[in-house]
Design a protein around this nucleic acid. Structure first.
Ligand SMILES: [Mn+2]
Ligand SMILES: [Mn+2]
Ligand SMILES: [Zn+2]
Ligand SMILES: [Zn+2]
Lengths: 131, 131
DNA sequence: TGCTACATGAGAACCGTTCTCACCCGCTGC
DNA sequence: GCAGCGGGTGAGAACGGTTCTCATGTAGCA
C-alpha cells in the first residue's frame, strides 16, 4: 500500500508543470528552487514509481533518464526536441502494426518496441537558423 | 590519420564473430578469455570509433551501451532478443516515411528517429515456454 | 492518541564510462 | 633498415548518474 506524502505530491506536480522531458536532477533542482526541501533520492524513487504506474514516460538520453508526465492508459510515443526537451505525444498506429508483424515474421514472441522521433522544435529551429 | 593496431583489429574481429548485441565489458572479457591482452579503455575507444564510422550499431539497455557489427552504408533497424541479445537487421521503410511526416506536421526540423523492436527469439521463446 | 510499518534524506556505495599520463609502437622519411 | 615523431595503449583514478544504507520521520489505522 502506497502512502501519500507531500514529497510524492510535489514531484508529481512539478512533473506536470514541466513542458517536456526532464531529468531527476533537474526536477530536484527546480523543486529546491521553489523552497521545497525534497531529497534527491526521493525524487528518483517518486519518478520511478510514477513510471511503473504509467503516470510518467521515460527515455534515456546521453546517459541520463528523462521523465515526462503522461496521459495515462494510452499507448503512445513522442516527438521530442533535441535541444530543449519539449515533447509532443503522437500516436503511431501504423508502426504498432508493423512492429508486431516484423516480430512475428521472425518468430519472435512477446514483442515490444521503442519508437521515438527527435528533431528541433519550431522555436529551436528558428533560433538555430537565425544564428 | 587512424593507425592500424592489433588491438583495434581484435575488437573488430570479436565483434564480427558475435551473434547479437554485446557490451564493451563483455567483449573485453571474451577477448581476455582468448588470451588477448587488450585494455578495457581500448575496447571502449575501438567500439566508439567503429560506431562513428558506421561499422557498428549501438543501443542502450539497462544503463549500458551494447554494440553489434553492422552492414555499413545502409540505414536499418533491429529486432532484438530481450533475453540473449541476438539481433536481426530489419528495414523499416514505412516507418521512415511516417517519422518524417510526423516531424514535419509539428514543425520539427532535422528529424531523427529511434526504432527498435524487442522480443524473445525463437530459441528463447521455446526455452521460456518449456519451463 | 499511539503504534507500526513504510517513507524519507544525507551521504556512501555502485557501476559503466571517460580521463590521465607515462610508456609503446605504427608510420614516414631517410 | 633505422631513427624520430605523433598518435595509440593501458592501469588506475576520476567522473556522474543512480541506487543503497540506515537512522529518523510520519501516514494510516485502530
Ligand atoms: Mn508503439
Ligand atoms: Mn529508421
Ligand atoms: Zn526545442
Ligand atoms: Zn534469445
Amino acid at each position: 500500500m502506497k502512502r501519500n506524502t507531500w514529497q510524492r505530491e510535489a514531484v508529481r506536480d512539478a512533473l506536470g508543470r514541466t513542458e517536456g522531458f526532464v531529468s531527476a536532477q533537474a526536477l530536484h533542482a527546480s523543486l529546491r528552487g521553489t523552497g521545497s526541501e525534497v531529497g534527491l533520492a526521493t525524487v528518483y524513487r517518486a519518478l520511478a514509481d510514477l513510471a511503473t504506474e504509467g503516470e510518467a514516460d521515460s527515455l534515456v538520453q546521453e546517459g541520463e533518464s528523462l521523465y515526462r508526465a503522461c496521459t495515462p492508459g494510452s499507448h503512445h510515443h513522442h516527438l521530442i526536441c533535441r535541444n530543449c526537451g519539449t515533447a509532443v505525444e503522437i500516436s503511431a498506429d501504423p508502426v504498432e502494426a508493423w512492429a508486431r508483424q516484423v516480430a512475428a515474421e521472425h518468430g519472435f514472441t512477446e514483442p515490444n518496441h521503442v519508437v521515438d522521433v527527435f528533431g528541433l522544435c519550431p522555436e529551436c529551429s528558428r533560433a538555430a537558423s537565425s544564428r
